[in-house]
């Protein structure tokens, strides 16, 4: 018996999400009194693999021959590793790849799946986990009824913990099938921090009055090392690109710090951001509903407040 985590390298480097699932998997393994294994693929340096061991993983199974495998191949890689280490719990990140791979794995292993898990399981008399539902308006406790369990872990649910361990790396061989989905092109947005990964986010809405006023929002984001985001109306009228739209029908985010500037706080917007740890609202309307969901609020004109805030941050950083 073991816990198996899927750590997905991005251009040979393990992102924070891989360290989060390693930490999560190691903690679940400890609860169950078993070891935590990891599965990965491709060309990853020993130094990178050592980081996974440092986060509590005891053994790493690597299918080194695979390059840009699709989700069908990845589900075969993970299920092969699960067989090899007798995994009873399999954890991957709730990201683009995890969202495609975990359901396949669930069917392949006939193992109950809960996606977007945000906390460690409860193993008293069964196996239950919690996850946000209704787009963050509530949480559900879900019980997995099968022997083998598959989980996908929501980003920012558990801080990575370095425990100083080492992992033995072994080659994983098997029949992983042919690639059916091929990558034709990758387009990078210039210079910006990717929204779903951002620790801090500065978001603005219709209160900014026009796209020409986003300069101060970008300045504030730069000062904070934050990504920029916007409300739905702003994306819909084309002031900002759609990939910046956060909310129930846009991107759902859970940063440590979320600034909402000139956004009233409609229930659909709140649903996408209320997983944020600290929320700061700047709005000239003291009755804006967003203040009810905020930790800190500033009632005032954004065009006066934001430049002052940038100045204050500059002098704070010295």
């Amino acid at each position: 018996m073991s816990v198996l985590v899927f750590v997905n390298p991005n251009e040979g480097i393990f992102p924070k999400s891989a360290l989060e699932v390693s930490t999560y998997g190691a903690k679940v393994a400890k609860m169950l009194g078993v070891d935590c294994h990891a599965v990965t693929y491709g060309n990853v340096s020993d130094a990178e693999l050592a980081r996974i061991g440092n986060h509590g993983v005891k053994a790493i199974h690597r299918a080194s021959g695979l390059d840009q495998p699709d989700n069908g191949q990845l589900s075969k890689v993970i299920s092969t590793a699960a067989d090899a280490c007798g995994a009873s719990v399999i954890v991957c990140s709730h990201d683009l790849v995890g969202k495609a791979v975990a359901p396949r794995l669930s069917v392949r292993l006939k193992a109950g799946l809960v996606t977007g898990v945000n906390a460690l399981p409860n193993t008293d008399g069964g196996f239950s986990v919690t996850k946000p539902v209704f787009s963050g308006k509530a949480f559900a406790t879900e019980r997995i009824l099968t022997e083998t369990k598959v989980l996908s872990l929501m980003a920012n649910s558990i801080p990575p913990e370095e425990i100083g361990g080492t992992a033995a790396v072994q080659e994983l061989s098997g029949e992983f099938g042919t690639k059916k989905v091929t990558v034709k092109e990758i387009k990078k947005y210039s210079g910006s921090i990717a929204l779903p990964d951002a620790e801090r986010v500065v978001s603005a809405g219709r209160g900014l009055k026009g796209p020409e006023n986003w300069g101060m929002i970008e300045d504030l984001a730069n000062e904070l090392g934050a990504a920029t985001a916007c409300s739905r109306p702003v994306a819909d009228i084309g002031w900002r690109p759609h990939h910046e739209h956060v909310g129930q029908t846009g991107v759902a985010i859970r940063p440590n710090l979320y600034f909402a500037i000139g956004i009233s706080g409609a229930i659909q917007h709140l649903a996408g951001v209320n997983g944020s740890k600290v929320i700061v609202v700047i709005n000239n309307d003291p009755d804006a509903p967003f203040f009810k969901a905020a930790d800190y609020g500033v009632v005032g004109d954004a065009f006066v407040v934001v430049p002052k805030l940038i100045e204050a941050l500059k002098s704070f950083k010295g």
Binding site: S106, K110, A111, G112, L113, V114, S128, T130, V133, G136, K137, A138, F139, A140, T141, E142, R143, I144, L145, T146, N274, I279, V281, F291, K292, A293, A294, D295, Y296, G297
Partner: peptide, 16 residues
């Protein structure tokens, strides 16, 4: 393969 046993609402913020 799974069943929801309970729902909870998020804790309300302490106040702005």
């Amino acid at each position: 393969l799974t069943t929801i046993t309970k729902y909870t609402l998020p804790p309300s913020k302490a106040g702005v």
